[in-house]
């Protein structure tokens, strides 16, 4: 399988602290790659660099063989990388369906007044309805987003990201703040996304959620990669045990 996203030697410093150091990894087509590590390992920083929210001090990122490092977030979305937010950031003044339609923003052509525009609008509307069904919010499609529970809000985040027809989707701790049942539902949805042929990069610190879900895992500690492999390989990797057990003892 070919690589869809490749990060080479990413480094990011905040003041004297090196949050990410010489990090290289790749996401392959159709796979679920988990980026995992204890708190403060540099996962979120890496995520934000890829999504365009932060700028790396050095290193390169290529997506579909084109460099994307340093592009603003909306350009990165336009190229087919969509994301979810850990703390759910819905558009509060809009219904569930309208939120999803905003996710389809990059799918629309330019001219608002052409005959094509109306057809395009209908098409995206229908597509958004299917996505809302897919994540299981069909009943709530016209509801205002303030009526959603936190878990439903997370599902909306996913439907909204999918509406952009991404080739890669970034999940920022998708299980954080969810009940066990809700997390299971999210895991099912994420598997379904991968089955549709969309690559998934998942940031997570909860091993129990991530390991059964991911095809491959990259483990970070103190901003550097300490292991990479299948969930089974990683599970028994001495450096991982060291990093995680050290922290787990504290938990």
């Amino acid at each position: 399988m070919t690589d869809i996203l490749e990060a080479r030697k990413l480094t990011k410093r905040f003041g004297g602290l090196t949050a990410v150091s010489e990090l290289s990894f790749a996401v392959r087509e159709r796979e679920i790659l988990g980026l995992i590590g204890p708190n403060g390992a540099g996962k979120s920083t890496t995520f934000n660099i890829i999504a365009g929210a932060y700028r790396a001090d050095s290193g390169e990122i290529s997506f579909l063989r084109e460099p994307i490092a340093g592009l603003p977030p909306h350009e990165i979305a336009r190229r087919g990388v969509m994301r979810t937010f850990q703390h759910n950031l819905p558009f509060e003044g809009m219904s569930v369906l309208e939120n999803v339609l905003v996710g389809a923003h990059t799918r629309f052509g330019g001219n608002l007044f052409s005959r094509k525009a109306a057809a395009e609008e209908r098409e995206q509307h229908a597509h958004a309805e299917r996505l809302v069904e897919f994540v299981g919010l069909g009943e709530l499609r016209y509801a205002s987003v303030d009526r959603l529970s936190f878990g439903q809000g997370r599902l909306l985040e996913i439907a909204r990201a999918l509406a952009g027809a991404p080739k890669l989707i970034l999940f920022d701790e998708p299980a954080a703040g969810l009940t066990r049942a809700e997390a299971q539902r999210i895991a099912t949805v994420i598997r379904g996304i991968a089955e549709r042929g969309i690559a998934v990069l998942l940031i997570e610190h909860d091993m129990h959620f991530l390991l059964p879900l991911a095809h491959r895992v990259v483990v970070l500690n103190f901003g550097a990669k300490i292991a990479e492999g299948t969930p089974d390989e990683v599970r028994s990797h001495p450096a991982v045990l060291d990093a995680y057990l050290g922290h787990a003892a504290a938990v």
Partner: peptide
Amino acid sequence: EAAAAMGVN
């Protein structure tokens, strides 16, 4: 922030 992530300039 979310708008930008959806591709809105």
